[in-house]
Each structure stands twice: as structure tokens, then as C-alpha cells.
Write a protein that binds this DNA or RNA. Structure first.
Lengths: 210, 210
DNA sequence: ATACGGTTTAACCATATGGTTAATCTATTT
DNA sequence: AAATAGATTAACCATATGGTTAAACCGTAT
């Protein structure tokens, strides 16, 4: 059940399910819609994934295992604080830009009490000191204690950096509804955003001389 | 339908519905659960709000009208850039802390294509130059042109400040699942966060002399 | 050619759930 | 006290939807 080799058909189902789940939520998702999206018969989904709940779990794991792994990679490379920080931000924004539905998928799960995330957390994210969350905390903790940034709670910094990245994608539709002209500038704004976040976080945390 | 005077019963329904909708989403919400939560008969909900869709719309408007209005208030008061910035951050975090379910409610709606938000946008948020989004953009635009902060796209700043505030509440459960010790520090972290975000944004945007 | 295992499908079933209805209760007016 | 209108309830209905099943399809080995 935790194998990662999926057939073509399974992949089609997973991709369709990801879209359906992230736009309509676990309960709002319709098996028939997933089947239609994937161009397959509904019974096939049950054949491969038994039921909606297991499909959801499989999609969730399938997607976020990769997501957290790719995010963590950037933190394991050598480099000084600003270099690693920049790499993390760029990777994060690229990941989100490739699949803007992911944050909502995760946030939805979490707002429902994160039953699947909690139950299968060990498969999804490394909780060890070599996993993404801990490495990111470490990044700030080290820079903080070496004096490269001012004394900062690493947790606050973690929330800030992830929030500034995620909210661009999660909140974009809100502001696009208010200011339609943003829609066309989207790609440009993503690139601009990399620089903006880096400067905000780096210079926002740097010790002040005055 | 857009009156704001609700009877006790209606209020109970609205509050119960808000909880149910924000944890389970529009489709996942169950009319029976809302009735149970409110301690009322299910048919009463239909009596007052006709059907699920209209109930959802009413709750949505009821909640976010107030939310955006209270957020906008802080931007209409006099004061220099850091003062207004601080007031906005504090108000925002207090609002979210009072009702941590709100961001998810809004984000869910948005990820479903924001049909209700779009349709009733004019009742929910002032789109005029005196409304919250525009005032916040103005705040940064003015500070930017007066040289108080370095040249910055106001939209990027808007996303950053809202993202850092919201994500604390939206993402908190994720990190609380990974680091259980955070749960007890929540209130303390909210207060600490006000200062953290202010410093990050203010000093992150300030012109650099070096 | 045929038998067989894995895959795919149309048709079907059971049930959860949104919504209705008709009766009852309650308070206010006359 | 009778009447009226609004509020509330239990019982019910229709249907959407998750899930099942049995048959058909298809490639491959014998």
C-alpha cells in the first residue's frame, strides 16, 4: 500500500483525484468526477483504491512525500545563510507555482483535524533532525546564535517564510477578484516575489546597527 | 436578505454553520450537524435560510463583512507609517486569534473558485479607494514614494503582511502535530508574533544604508 | 484455438442527506 | 377565550452518490 510504483491507470486516477480533492475537499470530491476527469470508469477507482478514504490517503501521501522531500533538499546543501535561504525560497515558490492546488489540499486536511496527516506523518515528512521542518528551524537557529541575524524565535521565522510563500498562491484568487489586472502579471509576480521575500526575510532579520 | 438584524435563533444557526462550514467545507457540512450544534431542529434552518446554499451565502457575508470592515478601520486612523503598520498587524492577529476558523473559511471558498465571494463582493468588501485592500496598498505606496521604505511593489508587501499573519493560524496545526510542545505556547506565540511581523516587515522594507 | 489472469465496463444497490410537509406549540391581538 | 401568525417539531420523500457485482474484454502463455 505504500509502494511508489503506479501503473498508468493508477497515475491518471491519482492526478485526477488530486485536482478534485484540492478544489472540492475530501467530502466534496465526487468519485464520478474523478473518473470523468481521468476518462475512466468509476468502478476502476474502487478496483485500484478500494474506497474514497483510501484513495484520499494514497493521493495525500503520494503528493506530500515528494513535496516535503523536494523542499528539504535545498536545506541539505552547503552554503552560507543567505545562499541557503535563497535556494529554499526559490524552490518553494517553484514547487507551488507548478502546482498551486497543493497548499489548499494540505490546509484543508489540517483544518479537518489532520487525521490522515497525523496517522501517516512518518511516511510523509522526516521528523528526524534531517527532515525539512527541523532543518529549516536549524537554519534560523544557527544564524541567530552566530549573530548573522538578530535574536529570533526560529519558529516565528519558519511561519513567516512559509506564510509569505504560500499565501501568494492561496490568496492570489482573492486579490485577482478585486484587481483583475493582476491575472496577466502572475508569472512576472512569481519571479518578482522570489526577490521580495528574500529581501524581506534577510534584511528584516539582520541585526540593525542604528 | 442582506439585513443584519438576526433573531437569537438565527444567530445560533449562523454561529453553528460557521463552525461546520469552516471545518468541513461547503459540501462537507451537514445540515443535521449544524442543527445539532445549535441545539435546534433541522427544519428550522430551512425555515430561516431556505436551503444550504443560501445559508452558506448568509454566513459568508455575515462573517466577512465585519471582518474586512474591522480590518479596514485601522488603516483609516491617522499616524505615521510604523504606527499604522503596527495597528494593522495587531488588529489582524487579534481578529484571527478570536476566530481562527475564518482564514480557512475564506481560503476554501476561494479554492472552489470563489463563486459567492465574487457574486456578493460589493457587500463584503469596499472596493472603493476607501476599502481595506486599496488603503493597505496605499499605505505601502505612499511610504515607498516618500522614501520611508525602499521601492517596493505594494501588492507584494500586501501579500507578505497578510500571509505572515494568516499562516500562523492556518499552519499552526501542522506544526503543532510535528512539535506538540507548541500547543501550550500558543497564546504567548501570538503576542510574540505581533512584534516579529512588525520588525520583519518594517525593517525588511526600510532603505539600507550600507 | 483456448484457457486464464488481470483489467474494464454497464447496471445495479443501499444509504446518507438535503429538503418538504403537515401538525403542534406559543405568544400576541382582539 | 378565540383567533391569528409565527416558530418549532417529527415524520417523511427524492435523489445523489459511494460502493458492488457480474459480465465482457484483452493480451499472453500453453
Amino acid at each position: 500500500m505504500s509502494t511508489n510504483t503506479f501503473s498508468d491507470t493508477e497515475h491518471q486516477i491519482l492526478e485526477a483525484a488530486l485536482l478534485e480533492f484540492s478544489t472540492h475537499g475530501r467530502q466534496g470530491a465526487r468519485m464520478q468526477c474523478i473518473a470523468d476527469r481521468a476518462g475512466l470508469n468509476k468502478a476502476l477507482i474502487h478496483y485500484y483504491f478500494r474506497n474514497k478514504e483510501r484513495l484520499y490517503e494514497e493521493v495525500f501521501r503520494y503528493v506530500f512525500q515528494r513535496y516535503f522531500r523536494r523542499l528539504g533538499e535545498t536545506l541539505r546543501r552547503d552554503g552560507d545563510f543567505p545562499t541557503v535561504l535563497r535556494a529554499f525560497i526559490n524552490r518553494y515558490l517553484d514547487l507551488l507555482n507548478e502546482n498551486p492546488a497543493l497548499p489548499m489540499f494540505l490546509l484543508r486536511e489540517v483544518s479537518e483535524g489532520a487525521p490522515v496527516f497525523s496517522r501517516r506523518i512518518s511516511e510523509i515528512v522526516e521528523i528526524s533532525p534531517d527532515g525539512m521542518p527541523y532543518l529549516l528551524l536549524q537554519l534560523f537557529a544557527k544564524a541567530s546564535s552566530s549573530g548573522e541575524i538578530r535574536h529570533t524565535d526560529p519558529f516565528q521565522a519558519l511561519i513567516s517564510i512559509m506564510g509569505t510563500c504560500i499565501y501568494f498562491f492561496a490568496g492570489f484568487p482573492i486579490f485577482a477578484a478585486l484587481m483583475p489586472e493582476l491575472q496577466d502579471r502572475r508569472e512576472e509576480l512569481v519571479e518578482q516575489r522570489k526577490e521580495h521575500i528574500f529581501e524581506l526575510v534577510y534584511y528584516g532579520l539582520k541585526p540593525r546597527t542604528e
